[in-house]
């Protein structure tokens, strides 16, 4: 981390102090709190926070200044509070497999149009990578290292030693009250595709309905996916 910081300093011509880092940690803590609050709201009232909106909003944080992004998240939240949407009867699903290559927005809209409320997902994980705040006192780099090592979100690209693969999926499904899981992995994504058999087995053992399909970032045809997801949603609602 210190080498990285030094290299970045050389690249930008700006030496970063510990106080600079603490300030940055605090800003990203605030941002992460807002992101996670919206995720919780979506799990509770998915009709209020359509996933296509949430995804676009959170992904915008990859290119915006963190303070601007936090303000945008708060403004969105205020809009939701001011104009509540009407509840709908749709199947509640968790989507997995997209942690790295991000799905096209149309794919998410397709899943929602097919009758699925997405109440849990693994998109734009970097926005909520750390569970909770990172301490802003003491050595900021050390705090960052500890947070990454000990409080990172489970992810197919991280070696999992603490739990059996798939357990975190079941935990996520239970926490979000999802009724089923859709595995939507990008073609040729080894971590997601290698993870899938283990996650599917765990879902099956926990009696969680699941279905799977592949997509690619430039996928333009969604009719097949819509039919598959729609059938899956129907099977959940009718069971």
């Amino acid at each position: 981390m210190r080498s990285l910081l030094s290299d970045l300093g050389a690249l930008t011509g700006r030496r970063v102090t510990d106080d600079d880092l603490r300030t940055s940690l605090a800003k990203f803590n605030a941002n992460r709190r807002e992101v996670c609050a919206l995720y919780r709201l979506r799990a509770e009232q998915p009709w209020q926070v359509p996933s296509a909106e949430l995804y676009a909003l959170v992904r915008a944080g990859n290119v915006l200044d963190v303070d601007d992004h936090t303000a945008m998240l708060r403004a969105y939240r205020a809009t939701l509070d001011a104009s509540p949407r009407r509840p709908k009867d749709m199947a509640r699903v968790a989507v997995r497999g997209c942690f790295c290559e991000q799905p096209p927005l149309e794919l998410i809209k397709t899943l929602e149009r097919s009758g699925c409320f997405i109440v849990d997902d693994d998109w734009v994980l970097s926005a909520r990578w750390i569970d909770g705040d990172i301490a802003t006192d003491g050595d900021p780099l050390w705090n960052l290292v500890l947070a990454f090592l000990e409080r990172a979100m489970p992810c197919p690209s991280l070696y999992e030693l603490r739990k059996e693969r798939g357990e975190e999926l079941v935990d996520g499904v239970r926490a979000s009250k999802a009724e089923g899981v859709i595995f939507a992995a990008p073609s040729f994504c080894d971590p997601a595709l290698l993870d899938q058999p283990m996650a599917m087995a765990c879902a099956k053992a926990a009696s969680i309905p699941a279905t799977s399909f592949l997509y690619s970032e430039n996928t333009g045809q969604f009719q097949v996916i819509r039919e598959q997801a729609g059938t899956f949603a129907d099977s959940i609602r009718l069971s």
Binding site: L161, E164, P191, L194, D195, P197, M198
Partner: peptide
């Protein structure tokens, strides 16, 4: 080789053997 990680996670699930990384 990243696949090594996933390979042994899969084998750990299949064989229930202890794993050391």
């Amino acid at each position: 080789c990243f696949t090594f990680l996933k390979w042994f996670e899969l084998l750990r699930g299949e064989t229930k053997a202890p794993t050391v990384m």
